[in-house]
Design a protein around this nucleic acid. Structure first.
Length: 468
RNA sequence: GGUGAGGUGGCAGAGUGGCUAUGCGUUCGCCUGCAAAGCGAAUCUAUAGGGGUUCAAAUCCCUUCCUCACCUCCA
């Protein structure tokens, strides 16, 4: 396969090297609070990318870290009068609860910073030996001026950064731009190091863990756009100074989620937790929303847009049930035509994703296919043969997008079809009150009846919180 | 101020030189015992403003205006 992704570093689209496995390092979350819709977007984008690559038979090795040592965690622990570990354990569990519900496949590995302290210490040692880092009163620092390419990812010039005012003043650093690799501290949790007790800086953890698990030069390093500077810039400085070779082949950054056009932030109090949006919209709507704009661009979370998405999702559900409940009673024609549609859809879908992972375009292709099937169903031309021809493609696309139509048990199926039979009898006797009572009973099970000319089908709808 | 990304119909969102996606919305209609769901038709002829290149530009160049993000922890 030939897939191109926009690389932040070279400011150009680059081919993903799929000759062997595709190694992806994704910067995960700091576990001091609930995850929000912004985290969801980044992680769903990478989950979908991974699903797509795997659907093409490409082996993916996805590593996503948990930052479980950080000042915010310690502050939260102090506030709750408990240990940092209690906090991180709670929010790691919370993370998996949320993302399992969002149908995000588990990464191959979720390394935690606290479990890689020795790797970080080794890395820092190496950087000191090579002359890129030094010890001072408050910790060990990376000397930015020693790394000549500093600023190449974020396109910043060192001189401008210095004059750009908002650099923390710290007399103990040789240069205001130098950043901490190791911070001395007696506040628990701390670890021993050759330089003194303390804890690692944020940036060093991702360098240490990505180098350890994916090597010095892997295919894709990703995260939110807000991580470009300083986090990823610093990772490049550390990793390339240590290894002497180029770090990630492609830097892939996902745009921010705004809320009604405003940046989402704790201080504005407008964050939307995953728990909140799941209760309100459910996983499929959220995934569709997160993939509805090109991943490099910002997307705006607003009720109106999410509501539109419900309509689309209902069409997908309708399409699925029309297909699985199609029967043989019709003449078989139009099969060649539908085969063409399937071929075209597949080709367009792949081509959209191959071209810098254009998910909005791919979604459009998927919806078009859904529309085509619903058209056939509406005109009583959807036979079982046609359904069987389309279903694999429908399911493959759904699976890549991580969408899941709600499933029904055989018991439910039997019960529903019995109720429908009873209702049909009442209808034929023009006992509409009784028929409507059955319809109500069915609808209480989240089943919607689809009355065609000569038959009644049904679909199970996902419950969407906001519609209650 | 610096850097980057943008400004496309009521809304969302593709499209990097020519054939003006797609979806939502709205209106009417089909279907129905009535609904629901679905479908059809109609509506909308958009490309921030100005200039230029070209037979031809949303698409290339110049310019003006505007928006957003990052430059501090942040997905």
């Amino acid at each position: 396969m030939k897939m191109r992704i926009f690389d932040t570093l070279s400011v150009a689209e680059k081919n993903i090297d799929t000759s062997s496995s595709v190694r992806i390092y994704l910067c995960g979350v700091t576990v001091y609070d609930e995850s929000h819709i912004g985290h969801a977007r980044t992680i769903i984008v990478f989950d979908t990318l991974r699903r797509y690559l795997e659907s093409k038979g490409v082996k993916v090795n996805l590593v996503q870290n948990f930052t479980d040592v950080d000042d915010k965690i310690i502050n939260r622990a102090k506030k709750e009068n408990t240990s940092a570990e209690t906090i991180t354990t709670r929010y790691i569990k919370n993370y998996f609860d949320d993302f399992d519900k969002l149908n995000v496949k588990r990464a191959d590995l979720y390394p935690k910073a606290t479990e890689h302290i020795t790797d970080m210490i080794d890395l820092i040692k190496g950087l000191i030996e090579k002359g890129f880092a030094y010890t001072s009163k408050n910790g060990v620092y990376f000397s930015v001026s020693k790394f000549k390419d500093y600023g190449k990812l974020s396109k910043k010039k060192i001189d401008e950064l210095v004059s750009g005012a908002r650099v923390e003043v710290d007399e103990t650093k040789k240069d205001p731009l130098d950043f901490a690799l190791w911070k001395f501290s007696d506040d628990s949790p701390t670890w021993e190091s050759p330089w003194g007790n303390g804890r690692p800086g944020w940036h060093i953890e991702c360098s240490a863990m990505s180098l350890k698990y994916l090597g010095s030069n892997f295919e894709i390093h990703g995260g939110g756009r807000d991580l470009i500077f300083p986090h990823h810039e610093n990772e490049i400085a550390q990793s390339e100074s240590f290894s002497g070779i180029n770090f990630a082949k492609i830097w892939m950054h996902v745009g921010m989620v705004t809320i009604n056009g405003e940046k989402m932030s704790k201080s504005l109090g407008n964050t939307k937790s995953i728990d909140h949006v799941l209760k309100r919209w459910g996983p499929n709507i959220i995934r569709l929303f997160c993939l509805s704009g090109h991943y490099t661009k910002p997307i705006d979370y607003s009720e109106d847009i999410l509501k539109e998405t419900i309509t689309k999702w209902r069409q997908v559900e309708n399409c699925y049930f029309e297909m699985i409940l199609a029967d043989n009673s019709q003449a078989i024609d139009g099969l060649d035509q539908i085969r063409n549609i399937i071929q075209e859809s597949k080709a367009e879908f792949d081509s959209a994703l191959d071209s810098d992972f254009n998910t909005p375009l791919a979604l459009g292709v998927f919806f078009k296919l859904v529309k085509n099937i619903n058209q056939l169903a509406s005109s009583e031309k959807l036979t079982k043969t046609i359904s069987d021809a389309v279903l694999p493609t429908f399911q493959e696309m759904s699976s890549i997008l991580g969408l899941q139509v709600i499933q029904v048990t055989d018991n439910e199926k039997n019960m529903i079809s019995n109720l429908i039979k009873q209702r049909d009898i009442f209808r034929s006797q023009k006992k509409f009150l009784e028929a409507d009572a059955i319809r109500k009973q069915i609808s209480d099970m989240n089943i919607v009846l689809i009355d065609h000319k000569n038959k009644t089908l049904w679909m199970k709808q996902e419950k969407i919180g906001i519609e209650d």
